[in-house]
């Protein structure tokens, strides 16, 4: 008996994989049904649904990039401290001295790539008309994922705490100042007042909510860190689960009716 066969017939192996290797038709079907990760997929599929020239594989790549970002992001979290004192130093150390500091490069380029692939995925879904019934709702879930992907990238942009970071976030968040009714330089904010006192001021408007302060500062760093590392990823992961579930429930990848 070869060593491979020995391992495959051991009790441990069999407790994990409950059937023989997927080398024949029956076991290729069984593997799809019994494996937790694979059961995301159907057992069989129409060939055009997986053709690269049809889906451009962009949804799949976006998902994979999300996983890459999660893994590299967690590794970075072991190292990086989101405080004014340390944030910049830690990033610099990642560049100069840290073993596997390349995780930061992979994380940043992966983030750029994810923004691009999510656009292209939407582009493909539009061009194949896949948002049409019965997939309307999944398109809406997709748009939410698009926003959240951009927000993930935006909140992460601040964390290195260099000039690029704070000014990009300053420019971006200055918009919130002009939110109608809710920004202290937005049209209509004067309407929200109680007995002559403005409710919307520099210290209580939409921008303040976003930054946690009047200017981009330590409170902002903390806020963006939590949003970037915990809050948004949790929502995105949930929505991706719904998105995939709906792809299956709406009849798989779209095809001519």
């Amino acid at each position: 008996m070869s060593i491979g066969d020995y391992i495959r017939s051991s009790q441990i192996w069999k407790s994990i994989f409950r059937h023989p290797a997927p080398v024949d038709r029956r076991n290729r079907i069984v593997v799809m049904l019994t494996n937790f990760f694979l059961h995301l997929h159907p057992v069989s599929i129409k060939s055009q649904g997986i053709a690269l020239s049809y889906t451009w594989c962009m949804g799949g790549i976006t998902f994979f990039l999300f996983l890459v970002e999660t893994i590299t992001g967690v590794l970075l979290m072991f190292y990086y401290r989101p405080t004014l004192e340390w944030a910049y130093h830690d990033i610099m150390a990642l560049r100069d001295v840290t073993t596997l500091g390349i995780m930061r490069e992979i994380h940043r380029w992966g983030a750029h790539a994810m923004v691009i692939t999510v656009w292209l995925h939407m582009y493909r879904v539009f061009l194949t008309g896949s948002y049409k019934p019965p997939r309307e709702f999944n398109w809406v879930v997709g748009v939410l994922l698009l926003v959240l992907t951009l927000l993930l990238s935006f909140t992460g942009y601040l964390l290195p705490w260099d000039q690029l970071a704070i000014w990009a976030i300053t420019v971006g968040s200055n918009m919130a100042r002009a939110t109608p009714f809710l920004g202290h330089e937005g049209p209509g904010f004067q309407l929200l007042n109680l007995g002559g006192f403005d409710l919307i001021t520099k210290g209580s408007d939409a921008r303040f909510l976003l930054l946690g302060a009047r200017e981009v500062g330590e409170a902002t760093l903390n806020r963006f860190y939590i949003l970037h590392c915990v809050a948004i990823p949790l929502v995105v992961a949930t929505l991706i689960a719904i998105h995939f579930w709906r792809v299956r429930k709406d009849g798989g990848i779209s095809q001519p009716l």
């Binding site: 290729r28 997929h41 159907p42 057992v43 599929i45 129409k46 997986i50 594989c57 095809q255």
Partner: peptide, 21 residues
Amino acid sequence: EEEHQEKILVWPDLVYSELVC
């Protein structure tokens, strides 16, 4: 798209292309 409607098994065709990807 209508001409490419053969049913194929996800293992190996899709799973392997995903791996390569």
